[in-house]
Simulated scan of single mutants.
Amino acid sequence: MSTKILQINQVSKHFVLGTSEIPVLKDVSFEIEEGSTVSIVGPSGSGKTTLLGLCAGLDQPSEGTITLNGIQLTGLNEDQLAAVRNEHVGFVFQNFQLLPTLTALENVLVPLELRGLKPNERDALALLQRVGLGHRADHYPSQLSGGEQQRVSIARAFANKPKILFADEPTGNLDAETSQSIEEMLFELNRESGTTLIIVTHDLDLAAKTQQIIPIKGGKIA
């Protein structure tokens, strides 16, 4: 029997600007199976990154409910949301978001430290080797290319063995050749770990590689 790892029920989101309310998402509902690969696609300004932030517990919806791995996120405070993210969620961002003062190895260890776990350098180094960067473990982000930084970011995302991994335009800042190798690595690691993968992208070729596509247009599922 399949398990729903993410349930989005009639979610809307608006932002207040002065005396105006700006709607970004309107009455969005969908479910995602555990272990599946999913893409959220849409043009710039369609609300897909806002939706990812809500799904991952980075923000709260204005209306509706979000349940991640059996935990209802709606109504949790910031500390509770952070605890859920640390325990269940991994992230890969378009701009890598590595800490510049930490080496590649230290960056991979960050999720474990956030969870209060004892850093396991052997496992972190194995992840770096898995993404082809074992020999760059002591290098800082400024000493790495964009593709190498994204590989470190992917290794970091899998470090705490997340139940669900969110990737926001993971190849958006990379050239075509590098993008392809990063995509292959992301899907391969995901298969090996059994993680649920959700990718926000405007790249329809990348979206076609996932099992489920959720198209967003004008804040609604198209």
Score class of each variant (00 low, 15 high):
Gly134Val: 00
Pro23Ile: 10
Ser142Arg: 12
Gly35Gln: 02
Ile221Lys: 03
Ile214Trp: 05
Asp138Gly: 03
Glu34Met: 10
Gly219Arg: 02
Ile216Arg: 00
Phe158Asp: 02
Thr3Ala: 14
Val84Pro: 13
Glu121Phe: 03
Ile66Lys: 06
Val200Gly: 07
Ala208Lys: 15
Leu81Tyr: 06
Glu183Ile: 14
Cys55Leu: 04
Leu17Trp: 10
Gly45Ala: 13
Leu127Cys: 02
Ser46Val: 11
Glu63Pro: 04
His139Gly: 03
Leu81Pro: 05
Tyr140Gly: 13
Ala126Pro: 14
Glu33Leu: 01
Gln180Pro: 06
Ile5Thr: 10
Leu105Arg: 08
Asn9Gln: 12
Thr103Glu: 01
Gly18Ser: 10
Val24Cys: 13
Asn69Asp: 15
Gln60Gly: 08
Ala126Asp: 15
Pro111Ser: 13
Ala208Met: 12
Leu206Phe: 09
Ile164Val: 08
Cys55His: 02
Gln60Tyr: 08
Val41Ser: 08
Cys55Pro: 11
Ala137Trp: 03
Arg136Gly: 08
Gly35His: 00
His14Asn: 03
Pro170Ser: 00
Gly35Phe: 02
Thr103Arg: 13
Ser181Phe: 14
Ser153Pro: 01
Ile40Leu: 08
Leu133Glu: 00
Asn190Trp: 07
His202Val: 01
Lys48Phe: 06
Gln72Ser: 13
Asp175Leu: 06
Leu197Trp: 03
Thr101Pro: 10
Ser153Cys: 05
Leu114Gly: 00
Glu177Tyr: 08
Asp123Trp: 11
Ile32Val: 10
Leu25Val: 07
Phe15Gly: 03
Leu112Ser: 15
Phe187Glu: 05
Leu102Tyr: 10
Val108Arg: 12
Asp79Glu: 03
Asn190Tyr: 08
Cys55Gln: 04
Gln143Phe: 09
Lys217Phe: 13
Leu174Tyr: 02
Gln212Val: 04
Ile32Trp: 03
Leu102Val: 08
Glu34Pro: 01
Leu206Val: 04
Ser142Glu: 13
Gln211Val: 11
Thr50Phe: 09
Arg130Ala: 15
Asp59Leu: 06
Lys26Met: 07
Gly18Leu: 12
Glu169Lys: 01
Phe166Leu: 04
Pro162Arg: 11
